[in-house]
Design a protein around this nucleic acid. Structure first.
Lengths: 115, 115
DNA sequence: CATTGACATAACACATTTATAATATAACAA
DNA sequence: TTGTTATATTATAAATGTGTTATGTCAATG
């Protein structure tokens, strides 16, 4: 699975996005993260593993605790891909007149004689 | 499933990202999209349905053809969410000194009495 | 050193995803 | 009408994802 696959896939789960949003306020341990969710600790641990694999969080070791915090790598990866798509979208808008012309052309064709 | 779920999920598939990349160059019909992929037409149709549901493409009707092009809605949705996370990341960097202090504190603890 | 707390991993159930083949439908062409 | 092209839908099987319980490991603590 590519980095991009992993990152988009990680972000597609609302629990994982909620975890990231909470980490946005600062470092938290697994237990602190698990508390507010209606979910067992192992389930949260697996979500964290997914987020780590996607480069969206990093963990450090502090005794028995594993505090997590946000990492930039994952965000950077998708940012880069998205900027490509954004640029294309803007380009498409720039030639909106062309698109509209194509649409009315096909409307005409539909009415009389296609191809 | 939320809009955000749908959009991130749609982008997590490499085939769908490839479809979007090709649509970035302009409108294409289902068959034109399906051609280069090693995949049947119904499979591509389903991918397109997913992309449409995520607000990443729109389709128009041209006789028996359904040309697709990029749409901004999906991108806008994730852009908004990402900017939130990005802002938080920058805030975390601003208090990097705090994080580093916490790290060396736990390093000390670890050295003092490991194992 | 026995117990407790923090976390990971394994085994399993269940739902979702994704591809295929077969078939349906709608527009066009002959 | 009949055949052909473009696309959607259905049924189904295989793969993947997500949660749970049970259990294991490592660190801290009394």
């Amino acid at each position: 699975m590519s980095q991009l696959d992993a990152t988009f896939s990680a972000l597609s789960d609302p629990t994982r996005r909620a975890i990231l949003a909470r980490l946005a306020l600062g470092e938290l341990t697994v237990m602190e993260l698990a508390r507010p969710f209606d979910m067992t600790q192992p389930a949260v641990s697996r979500h964290l593993k997914v987020l780590e694999g996607a480069g969206l969080i990093v963990r450090r070791v502090d005794g028995a605790k594993r505090p997590c915090r946000l990492a930039p790598a994952g965000i950077d990866a998708i940012d880069q891909w998205l900027s490509m798509l954004r640029a294309a979208l803007e380009a498409n808008y720039d030639r909106l007149d062309t698109v509209l012309a194509a649409m009315s052309r096909s409307d005409n064709m539909k009415r009389k004689d296609t191809r």
